[in-house]
């Protein structure tokens, strides 16, 4: 398993924080579908999350398979570390 720089953890946490806002607002919107401010905030964090993941994947490899991330050669999605290993 390749050694991870300290930035890996801080950058991963930024993604986890942004995606947490998205999950939380997604559940909220199921029962408050007309809350425009919540929809705006949701979309703002979708944009942030996408941009954070683009940078993260360039440095550390794909986060997803099945076409949700572009693949590189060699196919780095299959490489460790997996989430429970970091």
């Amino acid at each position: 398993m390749k050694q991870l720089p300290p930035d890996y953890y801080s950058e991963l946490e930024e993604i986890q924080a942004a995606d947490f806002v998205i999950v939380e607002l997604a559940l909220y919107l199921h029962t408050h579908p007309n809350d425009l401010e919540a929809v705006k905030q949701y979309n703002e964090y979708v944009k942030l999350s996408k941009s954070l993941k683009k940078d993260f994947e360039r440095k550390y490899g794909a986060l997803t398979s099945f076409g949700y991330s572009y693949a590189r050669c060699p196919f780095d999605y299959k490489e460790a570390p997996w989430p429970w290993q970091v």
Partner: peptide, 12 residues
């Protein structure tokens, strides 16, 4: 379903 190679929240 789509898998994301990260935990939802850090586990230490």
């Amino acid at each position: 379903w789509v898998y994301e190679k990260k935990l939802q929240y850090p586990v230490r």
